[in-house]
């Protein structure tokens, strides 16, 4: 499989089409179509017609609670890894699922490693915007590497039968 081009999106270990447009701080907001706005432009996004899909990009240092009132209107929350070592987005994703009961798409952006893929999924992330230069095969392999995990997660995996172990996949 060729190295992906910018914009490749991974779901369940497979490349999938990406219907979303990600807006920066300045670009004009399109009238229609699914868009991901920066947190600073959330109000603007919320002012769009309610039948247009809206997502928000959450900086890694933002409190999840800032999304509490807007969340029913959001179809997607993007969390980010400015560097792979900055693991705050794991807690943000987990809190979105566990505390705010968010059921929409959580997208990981930035520079996560393929070796973090299973962790991302187990914290509630649904899709990964692959960093430039990623080999999707390596991500796919990481997804099937382990058969069990040693602790429960917000993904609600089936218990394996012993202690806290969970069956993956």
């Amino acid at each position: 499989m060729p190295l992906h081009e910018n914009g490749s999106l991974l779901e369940d270990g497979r490349l999938v089409p990406d219907a979303w447009t990600t807006l920066d701080a300045e670009s004009p907001l399109p009238a229609t179509g699914p868009v991901i706005v920066p947190l600073s432009r959330l109000e603007e996004g919320l002012a769009r017609p309610h039948d247009e899909k809206l997502g928000v990009a959450l900086p890694q240092d933002a409190e999840i609670d800032t999304l509490r009132t807007a969340l029913p209107r959001l179809s997607l929350v993007a969390v980010t890894f400015p560097i792979f070592r900055d693991g705050r987005a794991f807690s943000q994703a987990r809190a979105l699922r566990e505390h705010l009961h968010f059921t929409g798409e959580i997208r990981a952006t930035g520079k996560p490693l393929p070796d973090q893929y299973e962790f991302l999924l187990r914290c509630g992330v649904s899709t990964v915007a692959l960093p430039a230069g990623s080999d999707p095969d390596i991500w796919a392999r990481a997804h099937t590497r382990f058969r069990t995990a040693y602790q429960p997660s917000v993904r609600g995996e089936r218990a394996e039968g012993f202690a806290l172990r969970r069956l993956l996949g």
Binding site: F84, G87, S91, Q116, F119, R122, C123, A149, A163
Partner: peptide, 14 residues
Amino acid sequence: ILRQWSTLHPEFTF
């Protein structure tokens, strides 16, 4: 128990 719980913990490895 803590060893197992913390092994490849999805949230606390970074």
